[in-house]
C-alpha cells in the first residue's frame, strides 16, 4: 500500500516511516500542506495520514484541497487535538487516530485500510468481469 504521511514533526514522520515500512508499505513524507498536495499528485497514495496543526495550511484546509483534486482520497486524521475529530470527519476523513497512540493501534489501523483496499480492488475486478461478460 502507498501511504503519504503529513506531519511537521520530524520525529513523528520518522516514527511512522520506521513502523509502517517494516510492514512492507511504501512511504512518502510531507511536512506541510503545500508539500502534501504536491506529493499527493505525484505519488497517488492509497492512504494519507494527516496531522492537524502545521505551519502554513492546517490539516483541514489541506484535506479540502486534496479532496478537490481527488474526491476518492482516503484521509486518516492523526492529531493530538481530539477537538478536531468532528471537523475532520465532516470534511470526509475516513477515521481519526488520537496521539499518543499505541503501536498495536497504529498497526491495526493500517491493517484495516489495507484490507479495505483489497476488498475495493476485488469488487472492482468482479465488476469489470461482469461488464466483460455482459459485453
Amino acid at each position: 500500500m502507498k501511504i503519504l504521511i503529513v506531519d511537521d514533526e520530524i520525529e513523528i514522520c520518522s516514527l511512522f516511516k520506521n513502523i509502517i515500512e517494516t510492514y512492507g508499505h511504501e512511504i512518502k513524507l510531507a511536512s506541510n500542506g503545500d508539500a502534501a498536495l504536491d506529493t499527493y499528485r505525484k505519488f497517488r497514495p492509497d492512504l494519507v495520514l494527516m496531522d492537524y496543526r502545521m505551519p502554513g495550511k492546517d490539516g483541514l484546509k489541506t484535506t479540502e484541497e486534496i479532496f478537490n483534486y481527488d474526491p476518492e482520497a482516503q484521509i486518516l486524521f492523526c492529531s493530538a487535538d481530539s477537538s478536531v475529530k468532528g471537523k475532520a470527519m465532516e470534511r470526509g476523513a475516513v477515521g481519526f487516530l488520537q496521539k499518543p497512540f499505541d503501536l498495536e493501534v497504529l498497526i491495526d489501523t493500517i491493517d484495516i485500510y489495507e484490507k479495505k483496499k483489497v476488498e475495493v480492488k476485488k469488487n472492482q475486478d468482479s465488476n469489470s468481469l461482469i461488464a466483460d461478460i455482459t459485453f
Binding site: I12, A80, P100, L106
Partner: peptide, 21 residues
C-alpha cells in the same frame, strides 16, 4: 499540555513497545 506533550509522548510510547517487541 494537551497538544504538544501528547505529540511528544507518541514517539517514546511507540518506540518502547517496538523495542520490547
Amino acid at each position: 499540555f494537551v497538544h504538544d506533550f501528547r505529540n511528544f509522548i507518541s514517539v517514546p510510547n511507540v518506540y518502547t513497545s517496538l523495542g520490547r517487541k
